[in-house]
Amino acid sequence: MNPGWLYIVTNKPQGVLYTGVTSDLEGRIWEHRNHVYRGFTDSYNCTRLVWYEDYGDITDAIQREKQLKHWKRAWKIRLIEEMNPEWKDLFETIMS
């Protein structure tokens, strides 16, 4: 099995939300923060990790991502605030 992570990044508290999935959360968030790839997160400066879930198998993370992509914004905000009520950047907490 290949572990996976589902995550949400934003540009500011309650700003633009981007949901993604990866097998390397620390590396992927580093890429967002350093604008390694052009695209949505780069254009909107989504560099703050505000929520994540870990999965034993990346296929489960992908399934959950498909679910969240269809969620209303208010539901995603509630999910974030359950884990991170102050919308702190959680990047430092995941650093190994």
Rank of each mutant, 00 (worst) to 15 (best):
L68H: 04
T19G: 07
A74V: 10
H70C: 10
F40G: 05
W71N: 02
I8F: 09
C46N: 06
H35L: 07
V16D: 13
L25K: 15
I77P: 06
A74M: 01
T41S: 13
F91I: 00
K76M: 09
H35Q: 14
T22R: 14
Y7H: 11
D60L: 11
T93R: 07
R64L: 02
M95C: 09
Q63L: 08
P85S: 00
G15W: 04
C46S: 04
I62M: 05
S96D: 14
R33S: 03
N11W: 03
A61M: 03
K72A: 04
K76E: 03
T19L: 14
Q67A: 12
G56R: 13
I58N: 07
Q63A: 13
G39V: 10
R64V: 02
P3I: 13
T10R: 04
R48T: 11
D24Q: 08
E82H: 01
S43I: 06
N84H: 06
Y55G: 04
G20W: 12
T22L: 11
W5L: 05
K69C: 08
K12L: 13
A61H: 00
D89P: 06
D57F: 09
R33C: 07
Q63H: 10
E31Q: 10
T47W: 00
Y55H: 12
N45G: 07
V21L: 07
L68D: 01
V21R: 09
K72Q: 03
W87N: 01
G27L: 08
N84P: 02
R78Q: 12
Y37W: 09
R38Q: 03
N2I: 15
P13M: 03
I62Q: 10
L6Q: 05
T22Y: 02
L79M: 12
L68P: 00
W30D: 07
W87E: 11
D57T: 10
R73V: 01
I58V: 12
R38V: 06
Y55P: 02
L49G: 06
I29G: 01
D57G: 03
F40K: 07
